[in-house]
Nucleic acid binder design. Structure first.
Lengths: 232, 232
DNA sequence: ACCTGAACACCGTTCAAGT
DNA sequence: ACCTGAACACCGTTCAAGT
């Protein structure tokens, strides 16, 4: 045994050859990778570092994932399971979107390197992503959205959510204008004015403003879209 | 001379030591990097590959940029100069936002690896980013937006734009449900329904729906916000 | 089937030596 | 000041050998 009952690494080195019991499985790989990311960030997530935590040679990982990219997809799918969608069964459409959007943003705010990946990842056989889409789509359907606009609405919301997740980790000084203040008087005053009201930069007010706006806009679109259809 | 008058590489190798005239400058580095990205993608943008195109040793680049990260910021600032903001001087607020948002999204759609970087990059001394913010802020100001909400509105729009830029490169099959169709009937029908109307997946309809919604929502917010202020 | 250990073809970056 | 060339400390990934 290379690890003690509590799962801690030991100094005992395993010999080459097939162990009596599989040392790795996808679940443990994903969990360990996630813990590594939480402690060291994505910059610290290397195949070597992960292998070390699993008390295994780096090459052993390739018996379970085809590439690091595939590992990232495993992490992503796991994170998707943390996104809240129960609200769509218990709340009206527009309120449910708020709960869902906030939890979605919060989950990925500290996993921004995954976001460019998620955005283009086919949902085929990605059960957790599908679970989210199904719940949201049911919410839209129940609200009376035309079926052929549901996907567009979800994508639009996701775009805003992903962009907002990236903003969460912005530094406090992101809007410091610096030396060029004289050439940008309007934005300079707007920045100062924002700071007086909200203090040093945080992503929350912009997210809430945008979320309220987009939901308001979707509500308005729903009324005109369904009017358009009922006259057919 | 290591390159002929047309700037093409030649086989002549420069000796060590300071050349009579600086071989590199930031402008040429940025332009060459951009050309490399357009031809080979970000995966092909390595310090070695860039140095080779500049007919220079990789280490020479470090006389001009502190790191690859700094190179990416140079590229980003250059791309910002391609974003259209003249519309804010010639069109009403809400129409100008549409032109601006579309051009912003189009510029970064094929530079998605930069997006996580831009989103957290301080604007200090980044003249092109400041130029954009100033123009948009003036548009909002003229429309009567409360000064302390202008930055929030810009950030909200940018979040949507960045998220939408990521969506542009999504593959056609991104919404293929695959084997799990039985467990996700509502989204499956929505996907089929979208396809009948819009064909294979493209990002455009979702972007236009979301953009219309968010502008509609901001318009509504503007009216209630300014009402709120006028009663003070 | 699933591990080890060596090897491969890269990365970004540093630095002494050169003019 | 600004280049070359060698070197460093990594990457992700492949593969023969082992049980």
């Amino acid at each position: 045994m290379a690890s003690d009952p509590a799962g801690r690494q030991s100094e005992v080195r395993r010999k080459a050859g097939r162990p009596t019991k599989a040392v790795l499985e996808l679940g443990r790989i994903t969990q360990t990778a996630l813990k590594l990311v939480r402690q060291e960030g994505y910059q610290g997530l290397t195949m070597s570092a992960l292998a070390k935590r699993l008390n295994v040679a780096p090459s052993a990982l390739y018996n379970h994932v085809r590439s690091k990219q595939e590992l990232l997809i495993l992490i992503q799918d796991h994170l998707m399971s943390l996104v809240e969608v129960a609200c769509f069964d218990s709340k009206p459409w527009d309120e449910a979107i708020q709960d869902w959007a906030r939890s979605y943003r919060d989950v990925f705010a500290h996993h921004t390197p995954l976001i460019p990946l998620i955005a283009v990842q086919p949902i085929t056989n990605s059960p957790q992503t599908l679970r989210i889409y199904e719940a949201v789509a049911r919410g839209f359907q129940r609200a009376g959205w035309p079926e052929d606009e549901i996907v567009n609405a979800i994508v639009a919301l996701e775009s805003f959510i992903f962009g907002s997740a990236l903003d969460v980790t912005a530094p406090e000084n992101i809007f410091d204008v610096g030396e060029l203040q004289a050439e940008a008087p309007v934005i300079s005053r707007a920045v100062a004015s924002r700071e007086t009201r909200f203090g040093r930069y945080t992503a929350a007010p912009a997210f809430e403003l945008g979320l309220a706006a987009i939901i308001q806009g979707l509500r308005w679109q729903l009324s005109t879209l369904s009017e358009g259809r009922s006259t057919i």
